[in-house]
Amino acid sequence: MLETHGLTANYGQFRALFGVDITVAAGECVAIIGANGAGKSTLMRSIAGVIRNAAAMVVHRGEPIGALSSAEIMKRGIAMVPEGRRLFASLTVEENLLIGGQARKAPGPWSLDAVYQLFPVLRERRKSPGTALSGGQQQMVAIGRALMSNPELLLCDEISLGLAPVVIRDIYAALPKIREGGAAIVVVEQDIGKALAVADRVYCMMEGRVTLVSKAAEVTRRQIHAAYFGEAA
């Protein structure tokens, strides 16, 4: 469904990605792991159109999309849950969710009621300002907002960052339910155990390059350690 081909990305004169190739099949969950500064978030931002690239570097269902804007990419069915959540502070929980539904008009399983069933606490807090919620609840709003566009590919960038273990558990418990709705997921994660538990395949990155590709069920800790630090496995 999605491929990157020799993907590069720069921040000014600084190059953050060097020829990254990944693939995501329909309905698949792919984990992207690596140390801070490995280029994981830059990869997500490039796929989502926040960082524009040469058109052929990102291909969605056979069509080059690397040069499209983030709005155009969301209309194609690719939605991102950004690191840091980035909710609209002046809007309520429900208004934040409804904005996600305006991004794409494609039919699908996700509606306000479906999001509230996935995260019941949001129904209780639907009239509260989005930023008045706890960090975990805000993360649920950010995920729900992305789901409201009924994406076929959900990009999750560091969704457990800074959250309590019990909240992380609840958020990760939602991922299989999201896949049941037909969406593929790419999850960027620092917690290797969490990533491997939900993923079909895993990519490890270091310094803007892919250093390991494996089925999640087959990769060893030794291979991951080597890929993290550039050592011989």
Rank of each mutant, 00 (worst) to 15 (best):
A9L: 06
G12S: 09
G12A: 07
G12N: 08
A16S: 10
A16V: 02
A16C: 06
L17I: 01
G19T: 07
V20S: 01
V20I: 07
V20W: 00
D21N: 14
I22C: 11
I22F: 11
I22V: 15
V24A: 11
V24H: 09
V24L: 14
A26V: 12
C29V: 14
A31I: 05
A31P: 02
I33G: 04
G34V: 00
A35V: 12
G37Y: 07
A38Y: 08
A38R: 02
A38F: 09
G39P: 00
S41F: 04
S41H: 05
T42R: 02
L43Y: 00
L43V: 04
L43K: 00
M44D: 01
R45I: 12
R45V: 11
S46I: 07
I47P: 01
I47Y: 01
A48R: 05
G49V: 00
V50G: 05
V50T: 11
I51M: 03
I51C: 03
R52G: 08
A55P: 11
M57F: 14
V59P: 10
V59N: 12
G62M: 03
E63F: 13
P64W: 00
I65P: 00
I65Q: 03
I65K: 02
I65N: 02
G66H: 04
A67P: 10
A67Y: 09
A67N: 15
L68T: 02
L68Q: 13
S69K: 11
S69Y: 07
S70K: 03
A71H: 15
A71E: 15
E72M: 09
E72A: 15
I73A: 09
G77Q: 09
A79R: 01
A79G: 04
M80I: 13
P82M: 04
E83A: 06
E83P: 05
E83T: 03
G84I: 02
R85M: 05
R86E: 13
L87G: 02
F88N: 09
F88I: 11
S90M: 14
L91G: 03
L91V: 00
L91H: 09
T92G: 13
V93C: 03
E94P: 03
E95Q: 14
E95A: 11
N96L: 10
L98H: 10
I99K: 08
I99M: 14
I99A: 13
G101H: 10
G101A: 10
Q102C: 15
Q102S: 15
R104Y: 04
K105D: 13
A106V: 09
A106M: 10
P107M: 08
P107W: 04
G108D: 10
G108M: 08
P109V: 07
P109Q: 12
W110D: 08
S111K: 06
S111H: 06
D113Q: 12
A114I: 06
V115A: 05
V115I: 12
V115N: 00
V115H: 01
Q117R: 15
L118T: 06
L118H: 05
P120F: 15
P120S: 14
P120W: 14
V121L: 09
L122D: 01
R123P: 05
E124G: 10
R125H: 13
R126L: 04
K127D: 15
S128I: 09
S128D: 12
S128Y: 10
P129I: 04
P129F: 15
G130R: 00
T131E: 12
T131I: 14
T131N: 13
A132T: 13
S134A: 09
S134P: 01
S134Q: 07
G135R: 07
G136L: 01
G136R: 03
Q137A: 02
Q138Y: 08
